[in-house]
Structures are given as structure tokens and as C-alpha cells.
């Protein structure tokens, strides 16, 4: 076995390292900087440069080494390389080769190129460990340009009515993807401090986003005319938001594709946009790896594994503590 499941997470015996472990380990390879994959407390971290920058921002003083995409590193008896996962800037799939057998751990991924995250690239392997957060045929994403149109229309409608749109989006990844799609001719863009912080780190790593201003408790309301506010989902219901005057709340998530979940979220608007692959994306990505054995983690694992088995794969569920895209409003950064 190239990788095996241990209490602390996915382990590579040949290289004596873990990938995205959920308990404290000596050496952790990290696919991306979301909290359910990059946890605090490991002795040593290995990740792409953008992920490492984000780890320093999130976890403070840690021992971390960065590795460029497509660059091979030998760790013990294993050859390791990182490849773009398209989930968010710096996110990676991790390829592990031991004695000629290749396994790839997808981390979280999406197949649509969003312009900010490095574009997803399928990697040939024997065994593919794939997330399947949205592994149901009910999930089909529209091209992001269409969703940005919806968001910009909502923003300009709100501006006309003197209402401030407050859009909930994860502070790392989703928030910046949306920033890049906003039409700043409509008005100024304000961000919650958590969003501002991660955006700044990504700017320093060489990415361009429209100008943003942090919104604080004592923000001068006059400056908020025609503005939009991007905030972590959990912050859209907080008391400072309610003090801004009339607002319209929005939530940007793949879960908004399901009416029931949209209603539970009780936002005024739900925008169906996700940094995870949809049904077609998952199926295409898996086919392109050429893998015969597929392990599926976080999401509709049983259903998706059964589907893959019916398509001729040797497919199994892998119980992990990854959460995928939360719908309950918990921020994953």
C-alpha cells in the first residue's frame, strides 16, 4: 500500500509522512490551507508556496517548507510531487509514487478554471483518492461568468434601492474568486477583516484583485453608498451587519443549488458557485486519471462509490474528517 489510513490520517509508510492529517504528526504534506485539511500543531509542513504563505498567516510560527508545482521530491522511499487542484490559489493534488505504483490524493478540487486558482490538471495514477462533496447528479454548475452576472445584477439592484448587499463567502478562496468577478464600476467593495487578511496574502503572492476596503464596526456609513460587502458566511448574521441599515444578504455556495438548503440558510439570495467539482466534473476528473481504484472521501461517499462501481471502477469509501464545503455557515478558514 502506498498510502494507508491511520488514526492521525492518511499515512505513507515508505516516506513516513501524512497527507492532511487531523491529529498532530511529525511530517505533514498539506494539499491546501483550509482548516479541515491544514491543522495546527504538526512538527513540519510541506506545501506549495502560496499555501505555505497562507499557513504562516493562519497558524503563525510553524516549520514549513515549500515545493513548486510539478517538482519531484524524494522522501524516504517515496517520490512526491504537487499538482494544481483548481480549488483555490496554491491548492494541490499530491502524487505519491512508491516502487512504480502511483497514488494521487486530490484534496479538494474543481475542474472549471476560475482565473485565480492554478488550473486543475488530471494526473495519471493507479489509485485516486477523490473528494466527492457534490457527488450527486443534482449538482451541475453554470459557468462562473453567469453567476458573476447574477451577483453584479443583485449588487446594482441593491445600489438603486439604497440597500447594502452583504455576500457571505469563505474568506479564503471563494471570497477572492468573487472579488475577481465583481464589476467595480457599480461601487466600492468592502471586505470583512478576515477576508481582507487572506486577500492581502494572496496579493503579496502575485495575484491581482480589485481594490477593497476593510469594513469595521465604526465605518463611516456615508462611504458605504453603492457598496457591496464580502464577509465570511458566519459574519453575515452578526450584530454589526444589522447596524449597517437596510441590507440584503447573499450566500455563495454550491449548496445553494438545492432549494431546501437555500431556504434553511435563509439568505435573501443564494448564488450557486462552488470551488468543488460538480457531478460531471468529478466523473470527468476521475476518468482522466486512468485509475482503476478510487477511494472517495467527504461528501455523498456511499452513493458516489456505488455509482463508480457500476461504471467499472474498484471504488470504496474512505472515512476521513474532511468537511468539504460547509453549508451551515461555518467559515473554513
Amino acid at each position: 500500500m502506498v498510502l494507508q489510513m491511520r488514526q492521525a490520517g492518511l499515512y505513507c509508510p515508505a516516506g513516513d509522512f501524512y497527507i492532511d492529517p487531523w491529529r498532530r504528526v511529525e511530517r505533514a504534506l498539506i494539499t491546501h490551507a483550509h482548516a479541515d485539511h491544514a491543522r495546527w500543531g504538526h512538527d513540519h509542513y510541506l506545501a506549495t508556496p502560496r499555501t505555505v504563505a497562507m499557513l504562516y498567516h493562519r497558524l503563525g510560527e510553524i516549520s514549513a517548507q515549500s515545493i513548486a508545482y510539478d517538482h519531484t521530491l524524494t522522501i524516504g522511499g517515496a517520490k512526491v510531487s504537487f499538482h494544481p487542484a483548481g480549488h483555490l490559489p496554491g491548492s494541490a493534488q499530491i502524487r505519491v509514487e512508491v516502487g512504480g505504483e502511483v497514488w494521487v490524493v486530490s484534496g479538494d478540487y474543481k475542474t472549471e478554471h476560475d482565473g485565480a486558482a492554478e488550473a486543475f490538471a488530471p494526473i495519471k495514477c493507479h489509485t485516486f483518492i477523490s473528494e466527492c462533496t457534490f457527488g450527486l447528479p443534482a449538482f451541475h454548475w453554470q459557468p462562473q461568468a453567469q453567476i458573476f452576472d447574477e451577483i453584479n445584477t443583485w449588487w446594482s439592484d441593491c445600489a438603486k434601492d439604497g440597500i447594502i448587499p452583504v455576500l457571505g463567502a469563505y474568506s479564503l478562496g471563494k471570497a477572492q474568486r468573487i472579488l475577481a468577478g465583481l464589476n467595480s464600476d457599480i461601487g466600492p467593495i468592502f471586505t470583512h477583516p478576515a477576508v481582507e487578511g487572506t486577500t492581502e496574502i494572496l496579493r503579496q503572492s502575485g495575484l491581482n484583485f480589485p481594490t477593497t476596503r476593510p469594513v469595521t464596526k465604526d465605518v463611516d456609513k456615508a462611504t458605504l453608498q453603492n457598496a457591496i460587502i464580502i464577509a465570511p458566511p458566519s459574519a453575515t448574521a452578526s450584530s454589526w451587519v444589522k447596524k449597517l441599515g437596510p441590507i440584503s444578504t447573499g450566500f455563495a455556495s454550491g449548496w445553494m443549488g438545492i432549494r431546501g438548503i437555500r431556504r434553511r440558510r435563509a439568505a435573501d439570495r443564494g448564488f450557486v458557485i462552488s470551488d468543488h467539482a460538480d457531478w460531471d466534473g468529478l466523473n470527468t476528473a476521475i476518468a482522466e486519471t486512468g485509475a482503476e481504484t478510487i477511494y472517495v472521501t467527504h461528501g455523498y461517499t456511499e452513493i458516489f462509490a456505488k455509482w463508480l462501481s457500476s461504471q467499472g471502477y474498484d471504488a470504496r469509501c474512505l472515512d476521513t474528517e474532511f468537511q468539504g464545503e460547509e453549508d451551515a455557515g461555518e467559515d473554513s478558514t
Binding site: L136, P137, A138, F139, H140, R259, G260, Y300, I303, W307
Partner: peptide
């Protein structure tokens, strides 16, 4: 797969449209 999806979406009209 249709039935499992329907069970999660919870509404037949919506499941079909999706």
C-alpha cells in the same frame, strides 16, 4: 441513483429539474 438523489433533494419536481 435517481431515488437516492431524490431522497436527499427531498422534492420530486426539483430533483427532476436538477
Amino acid at each position: 441513483l435517481f431515488e437516492d438523489t431524490y431522497a436527499i433533494v427531498g422534492d420530486l419536481a426539483e430533483t427532476i429539474s436538477l
